[in-house]
């Protein structure tokens, strides 16, 4: 059911992704605030198929030189490219005090045993400002290989960015700043250099009382 309805290809599928802040020493859900969250563990045929976005509409929001989105897409495979529009939840009640942990967790699954490399590039006006590269090994569980990046510390740039964003008095001002803030994640097979997933993230601030929201799109080139 997940094919065409979620972020994934027959080789690698995103199961969960979240960016959060948490009061250390009390790792229960009550003290954890999710800025953004994708959970793709309970998909059914009732879920809608993903809409598509022409990748050329967002080229300039991501690095355009060597290794940029255009070059990546031309190399393909095109079914590995996705766009996520996040409505981030900045409405946290957790006090920002020493000891608060800012983290990112993600989980992927695959029928294949690989070593994967995950690159996350934070971009401002389409230009990369910081990159994190992580390597993950597979763990066999319930008939498939799981790749888990657990509680990866958020970089200082992002923490400061969130702080400054939250200081803005109006949501439209936050959205205006977020218009030029994007993140590009590229997951490759470390040993073959094959691209497994490429996820482009763009943002607005959530106005919902139900926390972070998102839409997922396939990136296409007609």
């Amino acid at each position: 059911a997940w094919q065409g309805r979620s972020i994934g290809t027959p080789k690698l599928r995103l199961v969960e992704f979240m960016a959060f802040m948490e009061q250390q020493g009390e790792p229960d859900a009550y003290n954890k605030h999710l800025y953004v969250h994708i959970s793709q563990s309970n998909l059914s045929y009732n879920d809608a198929l993903l809409e598509s976005v022409d990748v050329r509409q967002i080229y300039d929001k991501f690095p355009e030189k060597k290794g940029g989105l255009k070059e990546l897409y031309e190399k393909g495979p095109p079914n590995a490219f996705f766009l996520v529009k996040f409505w981030a939840d900045l409405n946290t009640s957790i006090q920002d005090e020493p000891g608060v942990f800012y983290g990112v967790s993600s989980q992927y699954e695959s029928p294949e045993n690989m070593t994967i490399t995950c690159s996350s590039k934070v971009c401002s006006f389409g230009k990369q400002v910081v990159e994190k590269v992580e390597t993950e090994y597979a763990r066999f569980e319930n008939g498939r290989f799981l790749y888990r990046i657990h509680r990866s510390p958020m970089c200082e740039y992002l923490i400061n960015f969130i702080h400054k964003l939250k200081q803005l008095p109006e949501k439209y001002m936050m959205n205006s700043v977020l218009e030029n803030f994007t993140i590009l994640q590229v997951v490759t097979n470390r040993d073959t250099q094959e691209l497994l997933l490429c996820i482009a993230y763009v943002f607005e601030v959530s106005t919902s009382e139900h926390g972070a929201q998102h839409h997922i799109y396939r990136l296409v080139k007609d």
Binding site: H37, S39, E51, S52, V53, D54, Q57, I58, D60, K61, K85, W87, S124, F125, G126, K127, E179, N180, V202, E204, S206, T207, S208, H210, G211, A212, Q213, H214, H215, Y217
Partner: peptide, 24 residues
């Protein structure tokens, strides 16, 4: 930063791109 980008609102994007879901 660059100031010459076309605003997202003026790009060809699905209507849903501007509609925040009511719940996840």
């Amino acid at each position: 930063g660059r100031q010459d980008q076309v605003p997202m609102r003026k790009r060809q994007l699905p209507a849903s791109f501007w509609e925040e879901p009511r719940s996840s």
